[in-house]
Simulated scan of single mutants.
Amino acid sequence: MATRHITKAPRMGTKALYLPNFRIVLLNDPKLSPHFASFLVPLNLNKLDLRDYLYNCYGIPVRSVRSYIQMQKVQQDKNNAKRVSPRRWHRPRSIKKMMVEMDDPFVWPKTPEDFSQWDKDFVEKREKANKKARDAQGPGGASKPPAERKSIAEQAKELLEGKKEWRRDDNEYEDEIVEEDADGEWEEVEQNVKI
């Protein structure tokens, strides 16, 4: 009797695949030589990890690695705190930077002159508006007068010293006279209209 050979389908996903669960940031430092690259790395990453990461992911052979940990300045209250609590001192987490010496030079690409593809104007306006809103919500933000107008005290001082004379702004308060039409209906007539 002939025996039948049964072949099994190969199992999928048997090979171990390790993906990094950290973020490495390449810093643009114009003072560095093209043979050096500076990185912002997590605190638990060591020199051998960075060397292996660059070689296995990007095929970059590394000659040497230098690392240092930079302590942050002491701040009053935490950055993302919803309620500001004065007199609570906090030191943000330290930053670890590594500098790598490479065999092949790496030159950063030139920054483009036309940023219309990325809508840079809109992004800058949004950042200004966000900064203005953050400043208004921050400590003492409600007590600060808006930056668009002078304070009332400065205006009063200028009036008292005679640098400026008191006058009403005609653009802000336009004179309006109401007249009766021939039909007996009232209509508004503007004065001081510039044509």
Rank of each mutant, 00 (worst) to 15 (best):
M1I: 08
I6C: 02
T7I: 09
T7G: 07
K8Y: 14
P10W: 03
R11T: 02
M12I: 04
M12G: 09
M12R: 14
G13H: 02
T14W: 00
A16K: 11
L17G: 01
L17Y: 03
Y18C: 01
L19H: 07
N21A: 07
I24L: 01
I24F: 06
L26K: 07
N28G: 07
N28P: 04
N28W: 10
P30E: 12
P34W: 00
P34R: 06
P34T: 04
H35C: 01
F36E: 11
F36T: 02
F36Q: 15
F36K: 15
S38K: 12
L43N: 15
N46C: 11
K47Y: 00
K47W: 00
L48Q: 14
D52C: 09
Y55R: 15
C57T: 10
G59M: 01
G59K: 13
I60Q: 01
V62S: 05
S64I: 00
S64D: 07
S67A: 14
S67H: 02
I69Q: 12
I69T: 15
Q70C: 03
Q72P: 03
Q75C: 07
D77R: 09
K78N: 05
N79S: 06
N80D: 14
N80R: 11
A81H: 07
V84S: 08
R88K: 11
R88Y: 10
H90M: 04
H90F: 15
P92N: 08
P92L: 00
P92E: 03
R93W: 02
S94K: 10
K97Q: 10
M98T: 02
M99Q: 13
E101S: 06
E101V: 10
E101L: 03
D103W: 06
D104C: 02
V107R: 11
W108N: 07
W108E: 12
W108F: 15
P109C: 03
P109T: 07
P112G: 12
E113R: 06
F115N: 06
S116A: 08
S116C: 00
D119S: 13
F122V: 06
F122T: 13
V123D: 05
E124V: 14
E124S: 05
K125N: 13
K132H: 11
A133R: 15
R134S: 12
R134D: 12
R134V: 04
A136F: 04
Q137R: 14
P139Y: 15
P139F: 11
G140P: 00
A142E: 15
E148A: 13
R149C: 08
S151R: 09
S151M: 04
I152P: 01
A156K: 13
E158A: 14
L159K: 14
E161L: 10
E161G: 02
K164R: 15
W166I: 08
R168S: 10
D169Q: 05
D169N: 15
N171M: 04
N171A: 08
N171C: 04
E172F: 12
E179Q: 12
D181K: 11
W186M: 13
W186A: 12
W186F: 14
E187Q: 12
E188L: 07
V189F: 11
E190F: 09
Q191F: 08
N192H: 15
K194C: 00
K194S: 05
K194P: 00
I195M: 07
